[in-house]
Design a protein around this nucleic acid. Structure first.
Length: 203
DNA sequence: ACCGGGATGTTCT
DNA sequence: GAACATCCCGGTG
């Protein structure tokens, strides 16, 4: 279990994203293997919270690499990202799904509505709730803080699947989602198509 | 299985 | 005031 070097995060989110697959996220309630992520590329990405520049919400994404960016959405959910790129450059990778490894009982207690173990962490807000991640952890250090990402020796998949990102209107055409093929803890094997979407993304 | 709608409140225009 | 990097539940087939 070793922490990731700062240089791991000091790259484009497009490079960091697939490298985060199969790494291990450690939270206060337990741990899980990262099986699904999405890249958000700051000023170059209309789907990113940093697209229009620094705001009170997006400021952490402009900070140094290796921090945790936690945001609140839909009036009730927290979502967690790993901040990428050099200090001053905006970028992050959204953690979308985990395969629980330890602390299953604690996660079940936190997410009593989850019927099966695969429902504990198969979505960005679900994994935050399961692991006890909320806004108090925004800006925390992923290499030394209460929430960490570590390498347990499992390499990233040789052939990760990718697709368009889920739940966006702006930037919906960019295929910046990656996931572990065949893993049952991935939130969806295919992205949801908007009604106007005629051609599903090939994945 | 798929689909539609409600919850709930912050964020930025 | 509209949009929102979501989730859950209840309908229908």
């Amino acid at each position: 279990m070793k922490a990731l070097a700062r240089s791991f995060y000091d790259r484009s989110p497009l490079a960091v994203a697939s490298d985060l697959l199969n790494k291990v996220l450690i939270g206060s309630n337990g741990t899980g293997r990262i099986v699904e992520v999405e890249a958000y590329c700051g000023r170059d990405d209309p789907g990113s919270h940093g697209y229009r520049g620094v705001t009170p919400r997006s400021v952490v994404m402009y900070g140094p690499p290796g921090l945790l960016y936690v945001y609140f959405t839909y009036g009730m959910h927290w979502c967690a990202n790993a901040v990428c790129e050099a200090d001053g450059v905006c970028g992050a990778v959204l953690l979308r799904a985990l395969e629980p490894l330890s602390g299953i009982e604690e996660m079940r207690a936190a997410r009593s509505k989850a019927r099966r173990d695969r429902d504990l962490c198969n979505g960005p807000a679900k994994l935050c709730h399961a692991l006890g991640i909320d806004g108090a952890l925004n800006g925390a250090d992923l290499r030394r803080g209460a929430v960490r990402i570590v390498d347990d020796g499992t390499p990233p998949p040789e052939a990760p699947r990718n697709s368009t990102r889920i739940g966006l209107s702006a930037g919906a055409d960019l295929a910046w989602r990656w996931y572990v093929a065949g893993n049952p803890h991935v939130s969806r094997s295919r992205p949801v198509h908007r009604r106007s979407d005629r051609s599903p993304a090939s994945d």
